[in-house]
């Protein structure tokens, strides 16, 4: 089966700092990958590159066998134009650490407006989809509220619904529980857990919740210095990490 996402020797630098160092990495369709590692190791950058929010400095990223940052022109690869990026973006949905709901729109408008503006759906279609998604994340009664009137957990659930509304093939979760109060983490993880079980979605999840990673992922990748230092099935990975640094990291995280 061809890979859903493929990174081939991808390099990304911020000034003199190399955040992705010739990263090679592939994700199969429908696979759930948890990405862990110390902060600054390049985990979030990996997701942001996939979402086309950061340009790459070298290598090739492919989504469904099609280059993300390049277009095929005859035999040559040329830099992607805005139209190509726009088309590729539609395959991918992202949930952010800071929710990033549009503060001037109610919960349901946050979902309807992108559907109408980007997918060119009619207003009633979009509303029906938004309502069923809000129902799925358990927020149907909050659909008329503005983001500022919702708790962090509720905002993040709206954000998940908003990302799903675009019917992406790949969902990216960037530390989605890191800015939540501890008692609100559960409700958000619950929604993601259900998504993972019930939908055919490829998921890349950057997280600090080791228990969650273990439970939900098909594969766990440990990121260090812009590369994957170790990866494996969750059971083996957590029971018997081979890499010295992985062991140190897991020890530090699990002790907290």
């Amino acid at each position: 089966m061809p890979a859903m996402v493929e990174f081939d020797k991808v390099t990304k630098r911020f000034g003199s700092l190399t955040v992705l160092d010739e990263l090679t990495f592939a994700v199969k369709p429908n696979e759930k990958v948890a990405i862990i590692g110390p902060s600054g190791s390049g985990k979030s950058t990996l997701l942001r590159v996939l979402m086309t929010l950061e340009r790459i400095d070298g290598g090739v990223v492919e989504v469904e066998g099609e280059p993300l940052w390049h277009m095929r022109k005859g035999d040559a690869l040329v830099a992607a134009d805005e139209r190509h990026l726009h088309r590729m973006r539609a395959k991918i949905g992202m949930v952010f650490q800071q929710f990033n709901l549009f503060p001037h729109m109610t919960a349901i408008r946050n979902i309807i407006d992108p559907c109408v503006a980007v997918l060119k759906m009619t207003e009633p279609e979009a509303r029906a989809r938004a309502e069923s998604l809000l129902d799925m994340v358990g927020l149907k009664d909050k659909m008329g509220n503005y983001p500022a009137e919702l708790s962090g957990g509720q905002q993040q659930r709206v954000a998940i619904a908003r990302a799903l509304a675009m019917r992406p093939k790949i969902m990216l979760f960037d530390e989605v529980t890191s800015s939540l109060d501890p008692e609100l983490v559960g409700e958000v993880l619950g929604v993601i857990r259900r998504l993972a079980r019930e939908h055919d979605l490829t998921m890349l999840i950057v997280t600090h919740q080791m228990g969650f990673a273990k439970e939900i992922a098909d594969r766990v990748c440990y990121f260090d210095h812009g590369r994957i230092a170790e990866e494996g099935r969750p059971a083996e990975f957590f029971a018997n990490p081979k890499n010295e640094r992985t062991r140190a990291f897991l020890k530090a995280v699990l002790e907290v």
């Binding site: 086309t52 949905g93 992202m94 952010f96 800071q98 990033n100 675009m166």
Partner: peptide
């Protein structure tokens, strides 16, 4: 305008025009 909000809108595929008018 919070650049993160702009980023979210870009991620959802909004065009420059939509970004300006709607966000």
């Amino acid at each position: 305008v919070d650049p993160q909000i702009v980023e979210a809108a870009v991620a959802f595929g909004s065009s420059r025009r939509q970004l300006l008018l709607k966000i």
